[in-house]
Design a protein around this nucleic acid. Sequence first.
DNA 1: CGGAAGATTGAGAGTTCTCAATGCCTGTGG
DNA 2: CCACAGGCATTGAGAACTCTCAATCTTCCG
Lengths: 236, 236
Amino acid sequence: MRLAPPPLLHLEQYASLPGADRNLLDRMMDDIRTFKTRRDIIQIGETPDTVHLMVEGWSCRYSVVDDSRRQITALLIPGDFCDADIGMREEIDHSIGTLGEAKVAFISKDLMAEAGERPALKRALRLASLVDEGVLRAWIVNIGRRPAYDRVAHLICELQARLLKVGVGSGDRFELPLTQDDLADALGLTPVHINRVLRRLREENLMTLSNNTVTIYNLPELRRQSGFDDRYLRLR
Amino acid sequence: MRLAPPPLLHLEQYASLPGADRNLLDRMMDDIRTFKTRRDIIQIGETPDTVHLMVEGWSCRYSVVDDSRRQITALLIPGDFCDADIGMREEIDHSIGTLGEAKVAFISKDLMAEAGERPALKRALRLASLVDEGVLRAWIVNIGRRPAYDRVAHLICELQARLLKVGVGSGDRFELPLTQDDLADALGLTPVHINRVLRRLREENLMTLSNNTVTIYNLPELRRQSGFDDRYLRLR
DNA sequence: CGGAAGATTGAGAGTTCTCAATGCCTGTGG
DNA sequence: CCACAGGCATTGAGAACTCTCAATCTTCCG
């Protein structure tokens, strides 16, 4: 059964779906499981036999270097697939864990295959995967070439846009269930430095982050400062 | 017509192809164009109407930040597609330029669509795209969490493995048509620092880079030092 | 109330960057 | 054939950004 309010799927956004496809979407939401915070949905090396779709809450892809340093390679929000391309891969090469409590739809391979046969859904899935790739490239650029201050600002701009797209949070305020440690691991920085950057962002009246809530005071300046260009998200 | 020796395509590697598919592959190689060094194959904002496949030589995806800082987000070697997913996208969100002289196959949308209908080829294309994603994540981890020395070593390990896979270069020696500036832009460092790191790698007898040629003296140590784990490349 | 996780701050260390000069190599024109 | 220009590599020195270590504070929760 669908949750109310229904989590907006990218699938619904990318395609204008015929009735039959809508039924299929409903069936994809049949098996929804709840994860506590900081649990792995998929662990590196596994070969899951169901596809996982974020329905509510957040998770992240991550890898661990040297048994200690962690790097988050993607933040997944409602509507994002954890592993749409299962069936193609043997072992997954990274783990995916929740950030805060989260609801995840478990979708059988068969159902997924059925979806893959509907042109509209197939197209939507490919488009979602294209956007994911664009986000990965944007992160490389962000981490590789922007100083910490701009880097944090850029991530916030990205999340603001993505969340708005799926209808979570308002334009200038949203929940961000990441600790400063998590932010550090997503941006290739240390928690201490994240803290100082957040202070500066606050002092300059661009945004605040407290109680897991981001409040943006000056989105245009945040975007200008970080060089954010939303085209890679293919929002339109 | 195919070049001799034929550039090994990932397509050929991923799939054991029936005869009909082989013919199709041949036709895909009908229109091969040569680019001089440092030319854009595709520029940001374009909507190319043919698919581009690297046949010989190298190219890179890149973005420019602040009109001056460049970040390379992928290195493309023979067998890599520049834009297999055309038809799905409107404007491409990054440029692709050659590094050194290169030969690129221009493949019509129609031919590509035909390929997409052959199960073996379709699967091979999806797998190639999965590997591309894995490489992007590996780059994020590399740039985000490894010090410069390990970072350079890791990239070299990756390229060694990828080149070996497509049969370019020998196991411990290959051509690398990147300047130190290019390496810096790929790794999120400065050319000066790249230079110092290369010196240290040379002094420690792990590898040398000169005259656009990488020579590896101690691959196991290079891999150990950089924490290289080739699973994300799905070689086997 | 006590404990644990997370946030904040200070101080000093370290990696990487910037600026700038020098050297090397190659192609070109006189 | 030689001089010179341009691109690339190398090196030095000091600055800057980010990290590490460590203490303190706050908040949340049993």
